[in-house]
Design a binder for these strands. Structure first.
Lengths: 223, 223
DNA sequence: GGCAGGATCATACCTAGGTTTGGGATCGCG
DNA sequence: CGCGATCCCAAACCTAGGTATGATCCTGCC
């Protein structure tokens, strides 16, 4: 199973997940690489965090395995850096001599697992399975949300305002009074909103508004 | 979650939060008790998990502090037991000689923090603040949800069915065709639903359905 | 048996939502 | 300066949603 699809598909969940391993010890890289390949997982290994950052990451479900004690940058600092750069990827830490505060910090920051060396292969594989699944879900959600946001971005300011009021449950006439325009104009805005957002029904639009975090305070507040 | 205070108030967030401490070492109990009292927090101390379980817990924001090494029951097992008994309370672990796997297990199970003795007072206070706030939010949500569920329980089977279809975005005539009744009957059911659920608008009802986890999965919805 | 609650439906009537057609005003930009 | 985008509105017209009145039927229960 080495066939690498060159297809420009956009569905992360439809492609082969990847496991990234960062470790300065070549023997660790080889061992983990073999372990993952033995269960049919794609693996990419790196000798340092720097190398990892310079590679271009495909948009597929993935996870990152790294030692808490990296050469230049500590694993925890690297985790924080990824978060700051908005690179969200589930992390599994390994450590030979970590301590509890480190563990707590890593787990609080969202690490999937924190394995002490030597660990059982099965523990690592379980952690990777969890991490990949978590990333798959997270990517699916992110993709859906970005589609929504793209459509929302095509709305004019007025339309966004009306959408917030519509999804909050106000009637057209109330919206008209609220923003000082005629009811017929609200209806027209509303029609545009439904078409631009590709909402099949009002409940549909309401759910979109929920995902977009649109409350009556989001668009504009007056009076 | 059955302990109901006799007080007329129902808002946990409006009452004084409580910190529960379970430790078999009296000096620890005293020290922590003093620490929390010094910042104006209510404290209840217990010498064992058993004692804690036998007390009736008031319905206020709270958190639990316990040593990973409890006399009879380990802190981790106690955590698991609470979860199994559906007693949700944020837990802060303390340990004198814990290890990393313990820490990981506790954090994965939702522990707020895992402090190694000796810890700085401020670290404990920070953890408690986080835990109390988390519990406050969680209790507020639970209370809101239980109100919703109570109202949903007053719906007849048919009304529940119609509610699922309405909130999924179908028109009355489509719903009528779907379940084989007249459109007028759907309208009547719909009116009952809005009144029983105390929904002020369709968007309102849609959001309730979201919180209740009601999908178009006709028939029954089991999670 | 009779009563309550649930489910069904018809008629009538009203309100709310939505589109089309057609028009007008403002504003930024090439 | 004209073009396009945005925002505004009216009249006409149609569909969808919602309520009230009154009625039938069934079922479980006292």
């Amino acid at each position: 199973m080495t066939g690498r699809p060159a297809s420009p598909s956009t569905l992360a969940s439809a492609e082969e997940p990847v496991v990234y391993v960062i470790d300065d010890d070549a023997s660790v890289r080889v061992a983990l690489s073999n372990l993952f390949r033995s269960v049919g997982l794609r693996v990419e290994v790196f000798g340092s965090a720097h190398e990892f950052l310079q590679s271009t990451l495909p948009n597929v479900a993935s996870c990152l395995i790294l030692d808490i004690r990296l050469p230049r940058l500590s694993g925890l600092d690297f985790q924080a850096e990824l978060a700051k750069a908005d690179i969200r990827i589930p992390i599994i830490f390994m450590t030979g001599h970590g301590d509890i505060p480190m563990t707590v910090r890593a787990m609080k920051a969202g690490a999937v697992d924190f394995l002490t060396k030597p660990f059982r292969d099965q523990d690592m594989l379980d952690a990777v399975t969890t991490a990949i699944e978590r990333d798959r879900v997270s990517r699916d959600e992110a993709r859906m949300l970005s589609g929504l946001q793209a459509r929302f971005a095509t709305l004019t300011p007025r339309e966004r305002e009306v959408m917030a009021l519509v999804t909050s449950g106000l009637m057209n006439k109330q919206i008209a009074a609220e923003i000082g325009i005629a009811e017929i104009t609200v209806k027209i805005h509303r029609g545009h909103i439904m078409r631009k957002m590709a909402a099949k029904s009002l409940p549909d639009l309401v759910r979109m508004a929920e995902l977009l975090g649109i409350g009556p305070a989001s668009g504009g507040q007056q009076t």
